[in-house]
Each structure stands twice: as C-alpha cells, then as structure tokens.
Simulated scan of single mutants.
Amino acid sequence: MKKIKSVIITVLFATAIVSGAKAQGPNWIVDVDTYYNHEFHKGADGKMERFHYIWEEKDLNGYSNWGDAFIKYGGKLRSHDAAPTYQNLKGTDIYIIVDMDSQKETASPNYIDLPQVKVIADWVKAGGVLVIMANDSTNVNLPGTNKLAGAFGLHFNDDIQNHVIGNNIAAGTLMIPDGDPIFKTAKKVYLKDMSSIKLSGNAKAAYTKDGAVLFATVKYGKGTVFAVGDPWLYNEYTNGHLPAGYDNDKAADDLAKWLISQIPAKK
C-alpha cells in the first residue's frame, strides 16, 4: 500500500509542476548546443576549459540558473557536442542553439551547412522544440545563424536594438504586457544589444518594441521554434546581478515552462 501511495504522489507532483503542459514527463531532454558554440578560455588552474552558455558553468557566462528552471519543470539537461544528425537528435525534446561561433570567438569554428539545417528542420517538423538565440552581428556568426533561421521564416537583422551605453540600464528594459502567453510572471526584464528579427511565412512576433520584432515564434509541423536575437538568459542576468525590480529570473522560469509545454504529447 505504501509503495502504491508513493507512486501516486510522484505522478501528481509531476503533473502539478507542468500544469497546462501538453507533454508527458518528466525527464524531457533539453539539449544546449556546444558544437556551433564551442569556446574556450584559460581557467583558474591555467588550463584551457569550455565556457560561454553551457549548463555546468556557474559563473556569469553560464546557463546554470536557466538549467535549474528546466530541471524544476521536469527537464533533464544534456550538451549536444556534435553536428546534429537524425540519430543524435532522437530523444531530444528541446534543442537550444545559441551564439554560433565566428573566427573572432574561436580559431576553428564549426559552421552549419544546408544538410544540417534540413536535419534540424525535419526534427522540428516531427515535434521538436527549437530555440535559436543569436547576438548582435559583431558577436555571432550571423550568416550561419540565418541559414538555420531562414528554414523557419526568420531572419536576424544586422542591427542593434536596446543598445545600452555604460550604466544606462534603463535603455535595456522590456516591459512584458499583462496576459503574455510566454512570460506569465515576469513583468520587467533586461535585454540589451540584440538583433531584431524579420518575419516571413508562418513566423509570428512574440514581442515588438518600437516596430522591431525582438522575440518570435513559429509553428512548424508538429514542432515549435522560439527565436531571440541575444543569448540573454545566462547567469549574469538571472542571478540578482541586476538592479532590484527586474524579473529576468522569472523570465528564465517562464520560458523554460513554456518551452516544455510546447512538447507534443507522445502516444
């Protein structure tokens, strides 16, 4: 009897943390790309180590806080350190591709090609949830990012939105409207020096400021794409480093929950 009761409680808990989600779970696989973004720097011990937008990185450059949000809602974190193939994307529910390298960032960047774009597009069409996070053009391989984004009716522009000079934090502020379907608890967030997005086909604006699309979504087959022109939710902006009143920690939580809710239920 105790064993049956324990199983029931576990199922109820898993259901409660993703209330409203269409997916089953927990243990959704959330992959962050470490192939197209593959940067190194010298660590405290003097040895070269991976850094920039990876789950296990707990300093300001890492995604450990965002990773914790996915775990909270039943996600299981994984790093995708090879070029995407039909085989190695099997079992992946959410695939995050962030800040593709240029030669400015790494000596031998891995560039995306059209066969890989097709692999990713087919994976999304079959039900995958893809996140594309670009950057301003001086800090990302924008042509490569747009090669992928173009498959979904998205194009990151060569511009800089929400430009912040010095300590003018207010210039990077975004106010989230009431009733936003993605960011349900975050009301005031910080996001600076990003590229805007041009839309075509089925792509839709998810947030617009001064006529520029800053967040976009696409329904593609059974899957979903979320796009933003910046790596954004890394620890520097989600760990209390910002002035009081900003909700980037809530935004990381909101986006993780929304992405999980886009995973199709499996039969």
Score class of each variant (00 low, 15 high):
residue 72 K to L: 03
residue 119 V to S: 04
residue 83 A to I: 03
residue 161 Q to K: 07
residue 117 V to P: 09
residue 112 I to T: 03
residue 45 D to A: 06
residue 98 V to H: 07
residue 91 G to M: 06
residue 64 S to G: 14
residue 110 N to H: 00
residue 44 A to Y: 06
residue 170 A to I: 02
residue 147 K to S: 13
residue 148 L to I: 09
residue 48 M to A: 05
residue 86 Y to Q: 10
residue 129 V to L: 07
residue 185 T to Y: 01
residue 91 G to L: 11
residue 135 N to C: 11
residue 144 G to M: 08
residue 47 K to I: 04
residue 70 F to V: 10
residue 154 L to N: 12
residue 162 N to G: 01
residue 143 P to F: 01
residue 69 A to K: 15
residue 129 V to D: 07
residue 169 I to T: 14
residue 150 G to H: 09
residue 54 I to A: 07
residue 97 I to V: 15
residue 174 L to T: 01
residue 73 Y to P: 14
residue 107 A to T: 13
residue 139 N to P: 08
residue 55 W to P: 13
residue 51 F to N: 13
residue 85 T to N: 09
residue 135 N to S: 14
residue 47 K to F: 02
residue 133 M to E: 15
residue 65 N to S: 12
residue 186 A to R: 14
residue 174 L to H: 01
residue 104 K to I: 00
residue 133 M to H: 10
residue 169 I to K: 14
residue 175 M to G: 00
residue 80 H to W: 03
residue 71 I to E: 13
residue 181 P to T: 02
residue 183 F to E: 03
residue 165 I to A: 14
residue 69 A to S: 13
residue 117 V to Y: 02
residue 172 G to R: 07
residue 143 P to A: 00
residue 108 S to N: 12
residue 50 R to L: 13
residue 182 I to S: 08
residue 129 V to E: 03
residue 128 G to M: 01
residue 87 Q to P: 04
residue 152 F to N: 15
residue 143 P to W: 00
residue 80 H to T: 00
residue 178 D to P: 03
residue 152 F to P: 14
residue 73 Y to V: 13
residue 173 T to N: 07
residue 82 A to T: 03
residue 138 T to E: 14
residue 110 N to W: 00
residue 56 E to N: 09
residue 115 P to D: 06
residue 157 N to Y: 02
residue 46 G to Y: 04
residue 129 V to N: 09
residue 52 H to Q: 15
residue 79 S to Q: 07
residue 137 S to W: 12
residue 111 Y to W: 00
residue 181 P to H: 05
residue 109 P to R: 04
residue 93 D to R: 05
residue 146 N to S: 13
residue 179 G to K: 05
residue 101 D to A: 04
residue 49 E to F: 09
residue 145 T to L: 05
residue 99 D to Q: 06
residue 102 S to K: 02
residue 111 Y to M: 04
residue 114 L to D: 08
residue 157 N to F: 04
residue 53 Y to F: 15
residue 160 I to Q: 14
residue 99 D to P: 03
residue 146 N to D: 12
residue 79 S to P: 01
residue 184 K to E: 10
residue 49 E to N: 14
residue 147 K to Y: 02
residue 55 W to S: 05
residue 116 Q to Y: 03
residue 111 Y to N: 10
residue 91 G to N: 04
residue 124 V to A: 04
residue 63 Y to S: 13
residue 64 S to Q: 12
residue 115 P to R: 10
residue 124 V to D: 10
residue 186 A to D: 11
residue 186 A to L: 12
residue 167 N to L: 08
residue 90 K to T: 01
residue 152 F to L: 11
residue 162 N to H: 13
residue 70 F to A: 13
residue 141 N to W: 07
residue 103 Q to M: 00
residue 170 A to S: 14
residue 61 N to R: 15
residue 138 T to M: 15
residue 161 Q to T: 02
residue 168 N to L: 10
residue 53 Y to S: 12
residue 70 F to T: 11
residue 111 Y to R: 06
residue 173 T to P: 05
residue 174 L to E: 01
residue 176 I to R: 02
residue 71 I to D: 10
residue 166 G to K: 11
residue 145 T to G: 08
residue 69 A to L: 06
residue 86 Y to H: 11
residue 122 D to R: 05
residue 119 V to T: 11
residue 180 D to T: 03
